[in-house]
Computed example of a mutant assay.
Amino acid sequence: MRRLFPLLACLTFLAACADGARQLNKPVEPIGDFKLGHAVVIAPNIVKGPASRDATDEEWIAAVDSAIETRFRRYQGDRFFHLGVSIEGYVLAQPGIPLVFTPKSALIVNVTVFEDATGQKLNEEAMQLSALEAPSKDTFIVGSGLGQTKEEQMAALSANIALSIETWMRKQQRDAGWFGGPDAGVPIVPEPAEEVAPEAAAETADADTGEAAEVMAAVEEPELSAPAN
């Protein structure tokens, strides 16, 4: 667990990541056959990073669980999968000095995916993922510590970590065939029927009728002759 401290310290100075909440506005593309069964979020050994605001385990569990439900309930595949998420560490940036010291908020989780039908883990070792605050007009210069409340920081980080989980799952779908592979869950659109001119349709119907008559004649029962005395 000690290794999370330098990681959290490093993350506070890195560039911000994509905006998970904004990504929800994009059209829903299936993740193979994935459909969310249960999402279990825990925080057994959460670590608070340096120069961070305080947040309780319960607050983090509620925020991350809400973000996961919002993102993954959109997918309606044919098979249920469960997500186990352990919140490992966080930094909720405090107000800094603009242009000199603007700490960034960060969140680290471990993720495991289970297949409902078999009860098996898709990844034997939990995958560790991290997320940073997304850039905005309120945080680009002064950081989220000054531009957002603690609750806003937590909601933004939770949305970003849910997006990080989805991005990782899609990579596993492509590379390891999770959730049925890249073609699973994609709706099949039938090709439009080819238009046939009325004259050609009539000729086809006459030909079909003639062929049907010939077939019926071939299978008619022969006349039975009277038995010889």
Rank of each mutant, 00 (worst) to 15 (best):
N25T: 05
D183A: 13
D33H: 09
A155P: 05
E214F: 04
E29M: 12
V109E: 08
E166W: 03
L11A: 11
D78W: 02
P182V: 15
A201G: 04
D138G: 02
S158F: 03
E124Y: 10
I165V: 12
A117I: 14
L83D: 08
K26F: 05
I141A: 04
A62K: 14
E195H: 09
S225R: 11
A15Y: 01
A201W: 08
E214V: 13
A197Y: 06
A156C: 11
G49W: 01
P190D: 01
S158C: 08
N123K: 13
P98I: 15
L24W: 02
S158D: 03
I46K: 04
P50Y: 15
Y75R: 03
V219I: 12
S52N: 07
L122P: 05
E211N: 14
F81M: 03
L36Q: 01
E220I: 02
S86C: 01
Q76H: 15
E59K: 12
A217Q: 13
Q173E: 09
E203M: 14
D175T: 09
A67W: 02
A213M: 10
A67C: 07
L157E: 11
P44V: 08
E191V: 05
P192N: 14
M1W: 10
M154H: 01
P44G: 11
T167P: 00
A18Y: 09
L163H: 00
E59L: 08
Q128P: 03
Q23Y: 09
A197N: 06
W178N: 01
K35C: 14
D116V: 00
Q153S: 10
K26C: 07
A9F: 05
A67H: 04
A197L: 12
N229P: 13
C10N: 10
I61Q: 04
Q148S: 14
L132G: 07
S225G: 12
A117D: 10
A218S: 06
L107D: 04
A9K: 05
A228I: 12
K137Q: 06
T118K: 02
A176P: 02
P44D: 10
G32D: 03
E69W: 15
A55C: 08
R22F: 06
S52R: 05
R79F: 08
F80W: 07
Q153L: 11
L24F: 04
A193M: 15
A205Y: 06
D78I: 02
W60L: 13
L132N: 07
E223V: 12
E194W: 00
R71S: 04
I31E: 05
S136G: 15
E151N: 15
R3K: 06
A134C: 13
L92E: 00
P6K: 11
K121P: 01
L36S: 01
A212C: 01
A134P: 04
P6T: 10
I31Y: 09
V41Q: 04
P50G: 12
E214G: 08
L132M: 07
A155N: 07
V41W: 11
S130D: 06
P50W: 10
E221Q: 10
D78V: 03
H38C: 05
T12A: 11
V28K: 15
R74D: 01
V215Q: 13
R22H: 09
G119Q: 13
D54C: 07
W178V: 01
V85H: 03
L92K: 01
R3P: 00
Q120D: 14
F72T: 00
A21Y: 07
F101A: 08
E199Q: 12
Q173S: 07
S66C: 07
